[in-house]
């Protein structure tokens, strides 16, 4: 757990990596992100370089570059079919990238698995119904040389009271906590959770995340995939937004929110499509996009007051309408845009 100056033979190459977002990815807030990436000296837990994955003619993942540092809690957010699960499979060595490379602590995924550095809580399946909860944890624990005591992992996952229950008789939420326990028992540096709260009710979902959060505070790196915006918001230090096999935004939850939440101002502006004053609207505080449709101007901003004041006092715009963009709408807008 303690970062040291000792270097693994093949980790040297990582030192040279700047890990800047790709040209394609929209850096939600370049300044703070760049600051974190250049000044943060924690070891890199995950490094994806130009990762693509094709299934026949289908491009499930289209060029991912991502660096996750040790101790970060990262949400992999995106709608179904965005390529989250495929990416996770490649990080875990369950699938091989078509091009590019995935490295976990500088190692091939298989090697990282063999060393017990990384493990995952899968979305569904992966449990034997005829084993008890305790047997399941013991089974997995027995496969690792330096596993934690099974009782400790069960307590951390909150399933010690159902230890003797058959897995087949456990509820969906209990099975999910069991998956978490078997991930914890190997005491990995890095845990990946693929849609871990699918099928849970609100209460168990909240309880589940509180446990994950408590665990992550001890310095474990966590990457979780979700399509629930509020989960990413509440539990991640950093949100990586994926859509159609690409990263479309990468930043803290607050930064992503600032980008996705906001208001749209709609005004009539004669000859807006040729007026040179229109593009300068982009320099207003909070404005992240300006659209022109004939004589109509649409300004997407997080500071609607400033934009409204400017439009009505300094420009020929009139008939102003201001509409709030819902969190959900903004998310959809961001993840369905053309690339």
């Amino acid at each position: 757990m303690t970062p040291t100056t000792r270097r693994a033979p093949d980790a040297g190459a990582l030192g040279a990596t700047t890990s800047s977002p790709t040209g394609r990815a929209v850096d939600a807030a370049g300044g703070p992100t760049a600051y974190r990436q250049t000044r943060d000296t924690r070891p890199i837990a995950l490094q994806l370089d130009g990762v693509t994955k094709h299934f026949g003619n289908v491009e499930a993942v289209r060029g991912l570059d991502l660096a996750v540092r040790q101790g970060e809690v990262v949400a992999f957010l995106g709608p179904n079919g965005a390529g989250k699960t495929t990416t996770i499979d490649m990080i875990l060595g369950l699938a091989e990238p078509t091009t590019g490379s995935a490295r976990v602590f500088g190692l091939e995924p298989h090697e990282a698995i063999r060393r017990g550095l990384v493990t995952a809580v899968m979305q569904t399946g992966g449990l034997l119904k005829d084993l008890t909860v305790r047997e399941t944890v013991d089974y997995i624990a027995s496969l690792f040389p330096n596993s934690r005591p099974a009782a400790e992992a069960m307590a951390a996952a909150g399933i010690e009271d159902i230890a003797d229950r058959r897995v087949g008789k456990c509820s969906g939420g209990e099975q999910q906590r069991l998956r978490f326990a078997i991930a914890l028992v190997s005491d990995p540096e890095f845990i990946i959770l693929d849609e871990p709260t699918t099928g849970m009710d609100v209460t168990s979902r909240r309880a589940f995340w509180e446990r994950i959060h408590a665990d992550a505070q001890q310095g474990r790196t966590v990457l979780f995939a979700t399509h629930y915006l509020e989960e990413a918001d509440a539990y991640a230090d950093r949100v990586v937004l994926m859509s159609q096999g690409q990263i479309v935004a990468d930043g803290t939850a607050a930064e992503i929110k600032a980008r996705t939440v906001g208001r749209t101002l709609r005004a009539t502006w004669a000859n807006a499509d040729t007026d040179p004053a229109v593009p300068t609207l982009r320099t207003l505080p909070g404005v992240h996009d300006v659209e022109v449709r004939g004589d109509t101007v649409l300004v997407h901003t997080t500071d609607s007051d400033a934009a409204a004041r400017h439009l009505l006092t300094n420009t020929p715009a009139h008939d102003l309408e201001i509409t709030a963009r819902g969190l959900e709408d903004a998310f959809i807008a961001l993840t369905t845009q053309e690339h």
Binding site: M1, T2, P3, T4, T5, R6, R7, A8, A11, L14, G15, T41, R42, P43, I44, A45, Q70, F105, G106, L107, R115, G116, L117, N146, E189
Partner: peptide
């Protein structure tokens, strides 16, 4: 840059 101590794993 520091790296993870792999000898511990």
């Amino acid at each position: 840059m520091s790296t993870l101590d792999l000898t511990a794993h």
